[in-house]
Design a protein around this nucleic acid. Structure first.
Length: 583
RNA sequence: GCGCCUGUAGCUCAGUAGGAUAGAGCAACGGACUUCUAAUCCGUAGGUCAGGGGUUCGAAUCCCUUCAGGCGCGCCA
């Protein structure tokens, strides 16, 4: 067996790839070699039961090509494949050929890789490519509620994931800071509000006015007309209207910032919808010049009938712009400014048609980079069966949710670990972690029903569970003042317990899972992975004492603990969650 | 009417680009703290993978169809 040279920089950012190893081995066979390497690679799968093996080749498809029975092929391969230092001799089980990783080799390669790369385990070198991520985008003058949580945390997580994989990310908060809702708000302010009330109540007062407007507008439709007029005045630069707009925007931004601070989320750009106002005429001109605009029912549209979509509205009949107009302008601006290789839009699935439409318009404008625009949709948030509605005041404010979670965490700490230092900080990190993990733990496309009970449950598959597991691991390492570079000579042979081997196999999967999460724009793949890892580790923790064993075993187990601790911390950070050392 | 998404245990969800006996957590019940943090671990119980067809050696996964829920289809964003 070749010894690993830990000083060899090749080890950095290179990860064990068993699918590749098994594929190479299979390619030495003359019959199988007829298939493309990639095809073989993709045939391999993880067996459902560990007893069977670690990686399997189902021989059904080969059976058609080689014109032999699957079990015969498996049997023949078992007998003819050459040995590999990475693998135990393969075993045919019926129509499957099962491979088992050499446990010592696996332990050595994976754990050394983590000892050497540390927080870089699973990362990729810089690519020199930009990815623009448009996320969060709350509406000014409306409260930041749980409905905005998905976009905010999914976008933030994708930002972290792609950065980890070597991309330069640009996070853009495309604030909803323009539109008729400001007319409504000004109308309501003029009628039922006052400067002092707004100064005191801030966004709550704005929300009250907004709700009040809709209540009154139902009885008196003329109010809608008044609101449109006020918005017109904003657009035409009326001083009073603009001043109010600016004021409301500032109040909102301050309020949003509280939430972003709690979540520790930052943006590279806060260019909202209003930012593109002066670029809209040029977009309309360009569309006109390219012969894409068509008049229809008084409005200007891009006809998309031949692509089986409804038309994309560009200008209203009164000449003002629309959602798509602004998105197109923003995309052109971003391409010019950032020259992205991909631009992601993290919004609700309800908007998918809108994105398909204007992506097509960009394509029709002749921009080949239209293919780099990606809509990353997610499902709806309901409130215990009912729809969230700012207008009806039926919302759970995000800040309230986060603070309640923090408060609850503090109570738990006082009960379980009253002597903990910096309780407040730990409570914040854990409470927020619970909320964020909750939003990132299921497939983003699913609709979710918000429930206080679930959001504040910290047992089982939750953020606090992962953080707790991390803190446990830290606790062990702290007791021996663990230093990674002092443990490079650990003996992987002694890690023979089932629980330990299972943990190592799970650690091995980390880089692969990050890649999958990026490819599918799906942070929940990392969430699921971390739950798996924590479960395996907690079994190990229960079965295998670390600090009481003799030196060789202790050293090896400490390395394992360090590897898990590091991977949990990195994985959580990719979700935008902090991992405290004690809790 | 047309289109998109969803339907797996009482509840919330996994299920790896069709594969070997469908897995977790919560809730319920029963165990494990003189031992590295019990926010943990172990066990019991719980399933006609919405229904029906089809393709295949093989379907929760692909196709068709029915049903249920959500969403979208021109001047909101």
């Amino acid at each position: 067996m070749r010894d690993i040279d830990i000083k060899n920089s090749n080890l950095l950012l290179k990860y064990l790839d068993y699918r590749g190893i098994v594929t190479d081995l299979l390619c030495t066979n003359q019959d199988i070699n007829k298939l493309a390497r990639e095809e073989i690679y993709n045939l391999l799968e993880y067996p459902p039961d560990e007893q069977l093996g670690d990686l399997a080749l189902p021989c059904f498809k080969l059976s058609k090509i080689l014109r032999k029975a699957p079990h015969v092929i498996a049997q023949e391969l078992q007998e003819s494949l050459p040995a590999s230092p990475y693998l135990e001799p393969p075993k045919a089980t019926g129509p499957y050929l099962n491979f088992r990783f050499n446990p010592e080799r696996l332990a050595k390669e994976v754990l050394v890789s983590i000892l050497v790369n540390r927080e870089g385990y699973g990362a990729r070198p810089p690519k020199g490519q930009k990815i623009v991520i448009d996320f969060s985008a709350p509406n000014i003058a409306k409260p930041f509620h749980v409905g905005h949580l998905s976009s905010t945390v999914i976008g933030n997580s994708l930002y972290k994931i792609f950065s980890f994989l070597g991309y330069d990310c640009v996070g853009i908060n495309h604030l909803g800071d323009w539109g008729t809702q400001f007319g409504k708000l000004i109308t309501a302010y003029k009628k039922w509000g006052s400067q002092s009330a707004v100064e005191e109540g801030l966004i709550k007062e704005l929300m009250r006015l907004y709700v009040k407007f809709h209540e009154e507008a139902e009885k008196e439709p003329a109010l809608e007309e008044e609101a449109r007029e006020w918005f017109n005045r904003i657009e035409n630069g009326d001083q009073e209207a603009l001043a109010l707009w600016k004021w409301f925007k500032e109040i909102s931004l301050e309020e949003f910032q509280k939430v972003y601070d709690l979540l520790e989320i930052k943006f590279d750009s806060m260019a909202g919808e209003s930012f593109y106002n002066d670029q809209l005429p040029a977009v309309v001109e360009e569309l006109k010049a390219k012969g894409l605009l068509k008049e229809s029912e008084g409005a200007l549209i891009v006809d998309l009938e031949q692509y089986e979509m409804p038309p994309c509205l560009i200008l209203k009949k009164d000449g003002s712009s629309l959602y798509a107009t602004r998105d197109i302008a923003a995309a052109l601006y971003r391409k010019r400014t950032y020259d992205f290789t991909k631009a992601l839009y993290v919004t609700g699935i309800a908007q998918s048609l809108h994105f398909r439409q204007w992506f097509k318009v960009i394509e029709l404008m002749g921009y080949e980079w239209a293919k780099d625009l990606v809509h990353v949709p997610f499902g709806w948030v309901n409130l215990e069966g009912e729809k969230l509605s700012t207008r009806k005041g039926k919302v759970v404010l995000l800040e309230e949710l986060l603070k309640t979670a923090i408060q609850k965490t503090l109570e738990i700490i006082n009960e379980k670990n009253p002597n903990l230092e910096n309780k407040e900080e730990v409570a914040r990190v854990v409470g927020v972690g619970a909320v964020v993990f909750g939003a990132l733990s299921v497939n983003r496309i699913k609709d979710v029903t918000f429930s206080w009970e679930e959001a504040l449950n910290f047992d089982g598959e939750t953020g606090p569970y992962l953080q707790y597991t991390h803190a446990r691991a830290c606790s062990i390492l702290r007791k021996v003042a663990f230093e990674p570079e002092e443990h490079l000579d650990f003996d992987p042979k002694v890690l023979t317990d089932q629980a330990a081997l299972k943990v190592i196999k799970t650690l091995y999967l980390f880089p692969e899972r990050i890649m999958a999460a990026a490819a599918e724009y799906e942070p929940s793949l990392i969430s699921r992975y971390l739950i798996d890892l924590a479960q395996e580790f907690n079994r190990f923790y229960h079965d295998c004492p670390v600090l009481v064993e003799e030196q060789t075993l202790q050293k090896a187990r400490l390395v394992l603990v360090y590897a898990v601790k590091t991977t949990l911390a990195v994985g959580l950070s990719l979700l935008g969650i902090k991992a405290p050392e004690r809790m």
